[in-house]
């Protein structure tokens, strides 16, 4: 297997540059995922920097761009990748080192979407009642792992990263707009009724193609826009 990995050390490099690596299948100790290969390469070159943690696709640490597609390395089978495997950091965010990007802006947009339940619980002794159908509205929204694969694949975000909230944040917004327990629906919709924050989305659908969890941010944003329109 051949890998071409984008390397950048801010202490010594002026710009990112590609570096070639090779690995034999036998060196992988039975590992089948891209992360297994990267961990092996890091044993050979301890300076190779990327984030990773859970190794099973739930923590969202290891988003990266592989052969042109954003993905989580830990759930991307090597067998699905054409060699040479070209690995770059997620596009559209500042590079800190190698495959590690600065997620500050991504998290800022997430916070701006007010991703927290605002509700009036019935009492301390009771849960909110929510029918299975109401709860099912949250499926496909709440499972987001904040890996940023969607947002950093979005051309609208690339053009207006400081103003367009991006698919992950907007999907989080929709997750609370649609939650039957939330009482701030109108305020949420009003604050998102903005040509840059929300309506910059042109439904190019890169986000949906990129989501490693199989979620559909584009559809969520469509529903969000429809709810905003109804408020007019």
């Amino acid at each position: 297997m051949e890998f071409i990995i984008s390397r950048y050390n801010p202490e010594t490099d002026t710009a990112p540059h590609d570096r070639h690596y090779r690995l034999h299948q036998q060196e992988l100790d039975g590992g089948t995922m891209l992360l297994d290969a990267l961990l092996k390469l890091r044993e050979q070159d301890p300076t190779l920097a990327f984030r990773s943690s859970c190794q099973e696709g739930v923590c969202g640490s290891d988003g990266m761009n592989v052969n042109g597609q954003n993905c989580l390395s830990c759930i991307t089978p090597l067998a699905s990748l054409k060699s040479p495997i070209v690995i770059k950091p997620l596009p559209g965010l500042p590079i800190i080192k190698d495959l590690i990007v600065d997620m500050t802006l991504f998290y800022k947009h997430y916070a701006e979407a007010q991703p927290f339940l605002q509700a009036k619980p019935p009492s301390e002794a009771h849960e909110h009642l929510q029918t299975p159908a109401e709860r099912a509205q949250l499926d496909g929204l709440y499972e987001c792992v904040l890996c940023a694969c969607c947002t950093t694949s979005c051309p609208s975000f690339w053009w207006n990263p400081d103003q367009f909230l991006g698919p992950a944040a907007l999907m989080a917004a929709q997750r609370f707009v649609i939650d039957s327990r939330d009482i701030q629906t109108r305020e949420r919709l009003q604050s998102l009724d903005d040509p840059m924050k929300t309506f910059r989305c042109r439904h190019i659908q890169n986000c949906t193609a990129a989501c490693p969890k199989g979620l559909n941010p584009s559809r969520a944003i469509q529903a969000l826009k429809a709810s905003i329109a109804k408020e007019h």
């Binding site: 927290f116 339940l117 509700a119 619980p121 849960e127 909110h128 929510q130 029918t131 299975p132 109401e134 709860r135 949250l138 709440y142 609370f176 939650d179 327990r181």
Partner: peptide
């Protein structure tokens, strides 16, 4: 649940 955890129902 009051904090927003999406428990199954």
């Amino acid at each position: 649940e009051h904090f927003g955890v999406p428990f199954s129902r």
